[in-house]
């Protein structure tokens, strides 16, 4: 048990604070929703009803999609783009998809390489891009979910004000959908750009997200 916790410290810790904050979001979200209901002489809803409603899921999915887009783009962009001096970048001479030797593929696999890395053909092609593929799939699915749940919330608001409801294809062209989307994207892109450039001149001793404290500012791609 102690070994399980130590071996999975990062995924356990972040999984735990994810659940705690999701519960916090549900409680405060339900409270906010019921406050709105009271202002409009509507009936309050239970917490259980709220967490199974489109209002809650539109908010959750809106944030998920931007986070997964952030990582998807970062994984893709760092294949081709470098940032001199950054620990978040690879070295300038390794731009691109790299050689089989650098990626330990073909004749360069080792006995304990993953099976699909050794398999060759389509399986190695799929496995070679599996992180980007899965992150992209989660991004697309959560963005789709945001648009579907967001439309329900939007239409409920429209009905409240005796306005016409919209179809899904129409909803994805509305300012509401794009405002919800872009307000999340902008913060993700700034955070990524900041991390790339701040890690050139700033350090955190002990973190692999930083260069070693004594590493020169010009040194690119050296985890601490």
């Amino acid at each position: 048990m102690a070994r399980f916790v130590r071996d999975n410290g990062l995924s356990l810790a972040f999984g735990a604070i994810f659940l705690a904050t999701l519960i916090g979001q549900a409680i405060s979200g339900a409270d906010t929703f019921n406050h709105g209901q009271a202002l409009h002489n509507g009936d309050p809803i239970s917490l259980g009803h709220y967490v199974t409603s489109a209002v809650f899921w539109a908010d959750v999915m809106e944030n998920w999609q931007s986070e997964y887009l952030q990582f998807t783009l970062y994984i893709f962009a760092t294949i081709w783009l470098i940032q001199k001096g950054s620990n978040e970048s690879k070295k300038p001479d390794r731009v691109g998809r790299e050689s089989d030797e650098q990626q330990r593929l073909g004749t360069h696999t080792q006995p304990d390489s993953p099976r699909w890395a050794k398999a060759g053909g389509w399986r190695t092609t799929v496995f070679s891009n599996s992180l980007l593929l899965v992150m992209t799939a989660i991004w697309i699915a959560s963005w789709l979910a945001q648009s579907l749940a967001g439309r329900i919330v939007y239409n409920a608001e429209q009905l409240d004000h005796q306005a016409a409801t919209v179809s899904w294809p129409t909803y994805v062209t509305t300012a509401d959908f794009w405002n919800r989307t872009l307000q999340n994207w902008q913060s993700e892109f700034l955070a990524i750009g900041s991390m790339a450039i701040l890690s050139v001149f700033l350090r955190q001793r002990g973190s692999p997200e930083s260069k070693p404290v004594g590493a020169p500012h010009a040194e690119t791609a050296s985890s601490g």
Binding site: N8, W57, S142, L144, S147
Partner: peptide, 30 residues
């Protein structure tokens, strides 16, 4: 590595379940 693989499966299962729920809810609820 067995426990790490288990964590991987827990994360994937949680994410897929949440996405599936949200998409189905978005399609069915009117």
């Amino acid at each position: 590595m067995r426990s790490v693989r288990m964590m991987f499966m827990v994360y994937i299962a949680l994410i897929v379940a949440a996405l599936a729920y949200a998409i189905v809810l978005g399609i069915l609820e009117h």
